[in-house]
């Protein structure tokens, strides 16, 4: 399963990658993007099976990325990994086409459960 991790923080990309590795789900091929714009290009080029995106990022934030993808007809499975935990944020994410929202701080079990659900 090809997963693209999108976060402007390299530290957070490393943590997400580590938690995915520890999730107990094998066969994950993880790549990274440091911004929404970089992610757009990466998704067009490599067609990942799942995108895990931060919400707050400069230039193009996570919801703008998701909206742009859906506007061009891309239906890639998409979830947020974010510090944004308010209910209206989750509603906005789901309305825009996200499958789930994982709130930071998270555990490897959170990722394991999510991967089982989306695969």
């Amino acid at each position: 399963m090809k997963i693209l991790v999108v976060d402007d923080s390299k530290a957070m990309r490393m943590i997400v990658r580590r938690h995915l590795d520890q999730s107990g789900i094998g066969g994950l091929e993880i790549t990274e993007a440091a911004s929404g714009l970089e992610a757009l290009a990466a998704i067009r080029e490599s067609e990942p099976d799942l995108v895990l995106s931060d919400w707050n990022m400069p230039e193009m934030n996570g919801i703008e990325l998701l909206t742009a993808l859906r506007a061009e007809g891309c239906q890639v499975r998409f979830g947020f990994v974010t510090s944004e935990s308010q209910a209206h944020i989750k509603d906005m994410a789901l309305d825009a086409g996200a499958m789930f929202v994982i709130v930071k701080p998270f555990t490897a079990e959170d990722f394991g459960a999510m991967l089982l659900r989306v695969t």
Binding site: S9, K10, A11, M12, N56, T82, S83, E84, S85, Q86, H88, V103, K104, P105
Partner: peptide, 28 residues
């Protein structure tokens, strides 16, 4: 660069969880 990135993300996570406990619509 890694130190600044890590501390920024730590502030973001702590602040995000504080914001999440507030009523209504707020921005981080």
């Amino acid at each position: 660069e890694e130190i600044f990135d890590a501390l920024g993300e730590m502030a973001n996570m702590v602040g995000g969880n504080v914001k999440g406990a507030l009523p209504g619509d707020s921005k981080l």
